[in-house]
Amino acid sequence: MGDQALPEAGYRSMNWLSIKGLQKKYELEDMDVDALNGIDMEIEQGGFIVIVGRSGSGKTTLLRILAGLEQQTEGRIIFKGSVCDSEHPLPVGMVFQEPRLLPWLSVENNILFPFHPEGRAKDLHSKAISLLKMLGLEGYENAMPHQLSGGMAQRVALGRALSCDPEIVLLDEPLGALDYFTRRALQRELARIYMEGGKTFLMVTHDVGEALRLGTRVIVLKKGKIEASIPIELEYPRDRHCETFQTLLDEVLAALDDL
């Protein structure tokens, strides 16, 4: 991917990834729960889409369906003109709320985890090293996961998601479990990696401030439906004291509010 596709370049190309009428029902003992209730959405290539919502709004379910971890009850995901299913999943890398590193693998082998079945991990040493460098983890390639702090482990998880060069990076509240300072530092890095990579980012968070600092578009999800889709046209790094930022923040908060 490299630097040829700057985020702005593909920003307006439509019909790249379309989600049409997505529904997800969970059958509990005595009632059905609608986690997603008809989601229609266009995701532009090279965007940083942030999905916010209260717990139970369906935001994580949406991400898990895109990741192929769950099946929608109804609706379609169309990527570059063809329908995605379990045989043809979206080309994604994913970061979860917890790092989910494999405890018996070194940092390098965790980063190269997507390549283990093909037996290619050994040839990709230099790739792992350059990813570690980008993530500020130089020299940690032989460390084991239990030796890392929470923030470092999450950086490794991010490296793992990026190592297979996915077109789409899914982030499920990736910074939710980190302390304030680590979180801020990683937000800055995410913005930088997004700017450098030309990939499409889809992030779920419950932190509205984080959404506004990172997203090129914030989608507010409420009870399984899209409540609002708010474009954020601000330069990185964003100044949260500027007027536009505050206006947009109020807009997102208003959309989230039940009253």
């Binding site: 192929g68 971890l69 917890e98 989910r100 079945p117 297979c164």
Partner: peptide, 16 residues
């Protein structure tokens, strides 16, 4: 199961 999910996301077949 969370680790198995990671493998699923990265395209691991069942045997892998």
């Amino acid at each position: 199961p969370k680790l198995v999910e990671v493998a699923t996301v990265f395209g691991y077949k069942k045997w892998h």
